[in-house]
Write a protein that binds this DNA or RNA. Structure first.
Length: 504
RNA sequence: GGGCCGUUAGCUCAGCCGGUAGAGCAGUUGACUUUUAAUCAAUUGGUCGAGCGUUCGAAUCGCUCACGGCCCA
């Protein structure tokens, strides 16, 4: 427990909490064997399966068939009458209504029950029946208070809508908002689908260091930390890439990792300081194979997890049924900027002029490739709505990717865009140790020139490449953004259980 | 980092050309054995995000700050 914050400070208390505390102390005094928080209740059923199995039967069916169930859940709604009450309880699967009659549970228990509050967790057993209005319910004969809740729940109809509170107190969001629960269930299903996809194709799931001495595999600012016993500075990883490729050098031809990366950058609806990526590496494959894999994988998620081929995201519809478009960086720039010509883009001075006219703050140390990519990001990226692979990224901005055989200015690399957002990034890996060493040196020069996102020189990685990395292709997909897309959530905070916020 | 918006009861929100705080839900008390956002009657509950200023008087106007949301970089 942290002693910096005291959540039970007097300011945080109010009439409602005080009263519930009084109820709890009365429960403590009167509890059987003095146990106010019993844990010997056996829950045997869940709400949703009960509805699925018995929801269709007529009222009369229940007169002739006795079905006993025993459920545990949180009281969400109370409708108390003199000698009989209805409460709606919620468990992990959904809700079910309980009918509690004084004549059945006894006068004393009924009297106690009337003092229970929404938010309390109860265990109940009884027979299924249908009410006059046809709602499948449990006619309770055994009822126990399992956990007294000390804090009042939000309003039963509007629930909890305040974004800040939903993120800071996710537990409360999950109690109140079915939609929020389903987003995170969907997230779990998507991740499972992806994991199974790779496992079924003989990929080995691995875990590589999150604490790294050289933060590599991407261009981003890392979080710094310090290892006391070794007395060395360390970094939280910005990507697992270089470790995964070391494993391919070691002979694991197909590896993948689904895990967290950390980038010390701003927060936004698309950026959380820690986020989840899947990266996979496949020896004897090319970036073309990766595009095929990606397309099959995402179509599979749409089809098998969501059950549809058209995904609606924030009012736009993206078609996962048709083949994903593929075009090069330059083709896409020319397509969305019909007034520009190929020659202009191939000339650094011209390209710089164009970039500056677009308001891009061009730095002196930028090469043509960087200028082209900035133009791409400014004018193309947000317009790529249907799933689109953009290929042929300049080598200058792709320090780990293999050069293209026909045009060494670009690499055998692509990025996947959906809904104007980058979803994935993959390429044929640079397995020429000497070329890689040169590119690292160039990155170090850029770092010296002022680009604090440029890469470090990783000598051990070069040493690994010198032993020989087979021809390999690898890709990363941002899981959070993918889940946003498939759950139609506008902010990355909506798909991360505990998004980062400034402390209260 | 910049712009716009927000912060009032536990929750959802009114009140904002300045006159001293409201509703619904939740809670409490009472009535009620088929309710379902139960109903009916009564009722408790507020450092109006924080601070400074203007004013006889500030939830309301101004400034600063904090936290958040959206958009932009």
């Amino acid at each position: 427990m942290s002693d910096q914050q005291d959540n039970n400070s007097p300011q945080d208390e109010n009439q409602l909490i005080t009263l519930r505390r009084e109820k709890l102390s009365s429960i403590r005094e009167n509890a059987d064997n003095g146990i106010a928080f019993p844990n010997n209740f056996k829950r045997e059923h869940y709400s949703a399966p009960i509805h699925m199995e018995y929801g269709e039967y007529e009222r009369e069916w229940f007169d002739e068939n006795s079905v006993r169930v025993s459920i545990g859940g949180r009281i969400m709604l109370k409708r108390v009458m003199g000698k009989a009450s209805f409460i709606t309880t919620s468990d992990t699967t959904g809700r079910i209504q309980l009918f509690i009659q004084q004549a059945r549970v006894g006068e004393d228990l009924y009297k106690d029950f009337k003092t229970w509050d929404t938010g309390d967790i109860v265990g109940a057993s009884g027979e299924l029946f249908k009410t006059k209005t046809g709602e499948l319910s449990i006619r309770v004969d055994e009822l126990r208070l399992l956990t007294k809740s000390l804090r009042p729940l939000p309003e039963k109809f509007h629930g909890l809508t305040d974004h800040e509170q939903r993120y800071r107190q996710r537990y409360l969001d999950l109690i109140m908002n079915e939609d929020s629960r389903s987003v995170f269930m969907m997230r779990s299903m998507i991740v499972s689908y992806i994991r199974n996809y790779f496992l079924q194709r003989d990929f080995l799931e691995v875990e590589t260091p999150m604490l790294q001495t050289i933060p590599g595999g991407a261009t981003a600012r890392p979080f710094n930390t310090h290892h006391n016993a070794l007395d060395i500075d360390m970094y939280l990883r910005i990507a697992p890439e270089l470790y995964l490729k070391r494993l391919v050098v070691g002979g694991f031809d197909r590896v993948f990792e689904i895990n967290r990366n950390f980038r010390n950058e701003g927060l936004s609806t698309r950026h959380n300081p820690e986020f989840t990526m899947i990266e996979w590496y496949q020896a004897y494959a090319t970036y073309h194979d990766l595009m095929d894999t990606t397309e099959e994988l995402l179509k599979g998620v749409a089809r098998d997890v969501l059950g549809k081929t058209k995904i609606t995201y924030q009012g736009d519809t993206f078609d996962f049924g048709k083949p994903f478009a593929r075009m090069t960086v330059k083709e896409s720039i020319l397509h969305f900027n019909p007034d520009l010509t190929d020659d202009q883009l191939n000339d650094k001075e011209n390209a710089t002029t164009i970039a500056k006219a677009l308001g891009i703050p061009v730095e002196d140390y930028w090469g043509l490739g960087k200028v082209q990519i900035e133009i791409f990001e400014k004018t193309v990226e947000h317009r790529l709505m249907d799933p689109t692979f953009i290929t042929a990224y300049p080598a200058e901005v792709s320090p780990l990717a293999r050069r293209n055989d026909d045009d060494s200015f670009v690499t055998d690399r692509f990025e996947l865009f959906i809904g104007g957002r980058e979803i994935g990034n993959g390429f044929s890996e640079l397995n020429d140790a000497e070329d890689q060493a040169e590119r690292f040196q160039k990155q170090v020069a850029e770092k010296d020139a002022g680009d604090d996102e440029a890469m470090h020189y990783d000598a051990d990685y070069i040493r690994a490449l010198e032993y020989g990395l087979p021809p390999t292709a690898g890709e990363g997909i941002g899981i959070d953004r993918l889940v946003m897309l498939f759950t139609d959530m506008p902010s990355i905070r909506d798909v991360i259980l505990f998004p980062h916020m400034r402390p209260e």
